[in-house]
Design a protein around this nucleic acid. Sequence first.
DNA 1: TTTAGGGTTATGA
DNA 2: TCATAACCCTAAA
Length: 194
Amino acid sequence: MKFLNAIFFEYNDLNLFILLIYDYKANTNKIFLKEIKFFNEREMLNKYIKQKKLTFGKLNENEKKIIKNLNELFEDYFSGKKIDLINKINENRIEILIDNIYKTEFSRKVIKYLINNIKYGKLATYSEIGTQIGSKAYRAIGNTLRNNPLPLIIPCHRIIRKDGSLGGFMGEVNDKTWQANLKLMFLRIEGVLI
DNA sequence: TTTAGGGTTATGA
DNA sequence: TCATAACCCTAAA
């Protein structure tokens, strides 16, 4: 039994909508996160839902529980509790399948390095990642992070440029976009000053 | 400031 | 299928 499903959370004080696309597998009672999208306007969220033809099916009781926990995790994170989302998620019957998302050696190396080494409150640069994984393909690293379907969970927001500038986020390179501000906001929540 | 390098993916023929 | 451009970048000129 397998459902493709979606749910969204709304955080009014942050002016933030989070849309989650996931599989719920009833036989294991687990949620597999596929995609997280951030929006600053309800209208944009609606547009995306329409465009992707997402359905909001009825949740069963177990599924509801997992989703509720996840929402609480996000709330805790946003309120400044120092929680490592990716670890907490695994404790809450939620999984991300990195090897399903990333198909090449290179991109898996990048992502695994992020997950294992760039913990809450830490910062790293694209070039540091390159050094650590033994590659000078800095742009390729950027490209891998750009395609990150789970920003915030897979902590690409903690990667900045070597010159100290913020770098892009969620496909946006322009510092003035709300996406870039979101990156900054996440870092500030984690207590990182730039 | 510009240029070339790097690995992957998206796009188009 | 193949090629070409684009990319959340860096180092060196």
